[in-house]
């Protein structure tokens, strides 16, 4: 009989989650980080509420260190879909000159991402925030619920999570609590790309291979996106054909040398890929427990 394909089943599940949490939210928001997962999440939101617009704004936590192409793409995409875009930057961090290298590198993520996100959620009174995190990304995510309850301080308590049988999500919360909701929990990186291809979803051009200026720093290819990244002695930008598997702040995001310039080529390259996408994220390298700690403190 009719059984939905793998991708169709994932899509239906995500749409179900988006609607359940939105229907019971007071002020929902879609965290839009501009990457491929956000692109899929936004697409699913457009589908879930069609022909209505998704009844929520997009929130981008802007560290000011994103690739320029990401910001261009962000503004263009928000205009296309006709949704309100809120961009939030931690001004306190800017004033303290917290940058992703040098002595402030260690607190950069906490200040410019985690604290900034909490500020934005509090400022606008968002009670339900959708994010594009997937459980296959990282070990500590594998146990996080689809609907994740956060305390007033936005903290996650991995020891005290609500059971989620079937797809009956408990979206009730105490007045002080908020919810982080992850409709893509059950997707893998391969699923995301296959879906982007199947649905022809626009993504940032940085995912496609092109000649770009890079420096190699401790084994990682960093793109020199503007002149704010101080070059170390002996470093000289070279032009290489590269692309990104994951996008974040450019001084923290490693590129891969690749000639995959189209979606089918990316999907094919993925099938043969021998490293995980988070390999390119410098933030995760301090050990298996680091992401769990960040999440407990309120990171997405």
């Amino acid at each position: 009989m009719t059984t939905l394909s793998h991708l169709a089943a994932l899509e239906a599940e995500s749409i179900h989650i988006l609607r359940e949490a939105t229907a019971e939210a007071t002020r929902p928001v879609l965290l839009y980080s501009i990457g491929k997962d956000s692109a899929v999440l936004l697409h699913l939101a457009l589908k879930a509420f069609y022909p209505s617009k998704p009844p929520m704004p997009l929130l981008h936590v802007n560290t000011t260190w994103k690739f320029r192409e990401m910001i261009t793409f962000r503004d263009q995409r928000a205009k296309e879909v006709g949704m309100e875009l809120i961009s939030h930057t931690n001004q306190d961090g800017i004033a303290r000159n917290i940058v992703p290298f040098g002595p402030t590198a260690g607190i950069y993520t906490d200040v410019m991402k985690t604290a900034a996100l909490k500020q934005a959620l509090d400022l606008h009174g968002f009670d339900v925030a959708f994010g594009g995190a997937r459980r296959d990304e990282e070990k500590s995510r594998a146990k996080e619920r689809v609907v994740s309850v956060r305390s007033e301080a936005h903290r996650w308590d991995p020891k005290n999570q609500r059971p989620e049988p079937w797809r009956l999500f408990n979206t009730r919360k105490q007045p002080s609590q908020s919810l982080r909701v992850f409709p893509l929990s059950n997707w893998t990186e391969a699923d995301v790309w296959a879906y982007i291809q199947a649905e022809n979803i626009p993504v940032v051009p940085l995912y496609f291979a092109a000649p770009r200026p890079v420096v190699e720093r401790s084994g990682t290819l960093l793109m020199v996106d503007d002149n704010r990244l101080p070059l170390l002695p002996g470093e000289r930008p070279q032009t290489k054909v590269i692309r990104f598997r994951t996008l974040g702040c450019y001084p923290l995001t490693g590129a891969v040398e690749s000639h995959a310039a189209t979606l089918p080529e990316i999907v094919a390259e993925m099938q043969g890929a021998r490293t995980s996408e988070r390999q390119g994220r410098l933030i995760d390298h301090d050990g298996a427990a680091s992401m769990e700690r960040k999440k407990q403190e309120g990171y997405f």
């Binding site: 793998h6 070990k139 500590s140 594998a142 059950n186 391969a190 769990e292």
Partner: peptide, 28 residues
Amino acid sequence: DGLAAEREQGITIDVAYRYFSTPRRAFI
């Protein structure tokens, strides 16, 4: 064994989801 505390105890104490696929099927 996902979470740090659990790793130290050498046991898993919650529900964790894993994903893999073969050309025929995707598995959760």
